[in-house]
Design a protein around this nucleic acid. Sequence first.
DNA 1: GCGTCGATGGCA
DNA 2: GCCATCGACGCG
Length: 200
Amino acid sequence: MNSSKAIVGRPASLCREFYARPAIELAPALIGTILVHRIRGREYRARLVETEAYVGQHDLACHASKGRTKRTAVMFGPPGFAYVYLIYGMYDMFNIVAAAEGDAQAVLVRAAEPLDGWKADLSGPGKLCRALRIGRAENGLDLTGEKLFLRPPGGEKSRIVRTPRVGVDYSGDWKHELLRFYDADSNAVSKPRRADAQPI
DNA sequence: GCGTCGATGGCA
DNA sequence: GCCATCGACGCG
């Protein structure tokens, strides 16, 4: 066994540099990582199994394509921060800011598997936020802190596949881009699973 | 099992 | 007037 765990005081969490890369690279790298949310004396943990990359201002499905606004400001900031927004009047969406400051890219977290025997349905971005208590109050939160953060994958490497993103039919040619990633062996992936999913 | 539809509010 | 959604409903 690796003895470093006994030496280091607390388990490693992902650092700023991990997030400082293009969303198309970060999105698959996040599959298998452990999301931790410490809130009101409790700790919610879940293993990420589905993500989507939103790759910048030229991406017509990316909120940043409308330019810098009050809502999208966080995406234009440095990587490793939470971008949380309200959709359809009732669901919050949790995104992780990627790439360098000024380059508005982000990764949407779409699904996860609850850990520690926690029974929860995290198979969809709205359901995931509700169950993990992630809302607009967490918008702009630094994910390298101790309240909401990620830990490196444990165990075996995931078999990742890619498909078009969900719910972006309005975005012209961008709707065809294979920017959704998921763990092909997880049963917590949100509904449109696809038979034509491509190996990564 | 599928398609359709309404809820609901911030934003441009 | 849109939405990076979800769950309820009606079908047969």
